[in-house]
Amino acid sequence: MIMLFVFIAIVVLVFMFIGFYNSLVRLRNQVKNAWSQIDVQLKRRHDLIPNLIETAKGYMKHEQDTLKAITEARSKAMGADSVGEKSKAESALSGAMSKFFVVVENYPDLKANQNFLALQEELTSTENKIAFSRQSYNDQVLFFNNKIQMFPSNIVAGMFNFKQEDFFELEDKTERAVPKVDFSS
């Protein structure tokens, strides 16, 4: 009789163990998937920037520094590997971009260029997509990290070496608030 109980207890424990392991794996995959969503958008931004520079170059003869800053930030961001590095490099890139769009205000010819307008819309949209996918990535990471730290799933996580993931923080609040520019004039 006791043997039977012990046996049942072991079976239950084994099943619980499998369940925790599987849910951890599923969460980790979800985090990876969310990250790939961000990555797609970041790549898209990197692809758009050369076109933007090419279009703007002819008009902005006196703003070579601004353009250079973007190009440098872009190559740095493309070289970044880990999530932590990427978030730093990408926020630098965002900063350079927002400076650029402020400077654009002084070039009405450029602002009227259809090609430039289309690019600007694409970039705005890509920034938004990055922001939205970043939010869902961070939600997933929070969920995953909680699971790793909390009892009893932390035992399973420790045994199979599940590591906590980094959050993707793009910028601090002052940078996130895009400088307000009056277009009415």
Binding site: F101, V104, E105, K111, A112, L117, Q120, E121, T124, K173, A177, V178, P179, K180, V181, F183
Partner: peptide, 14 residues
């Protein structure tokens, strides 16, 4: 969840 309070600048010429 933080609110965004500042309007995004519109692309010029729209």
């Amino acid at each position: 969840i933080d609110l965004r309070t500042i309007a995004k600048p519109e692309p010029a010429g729209t």
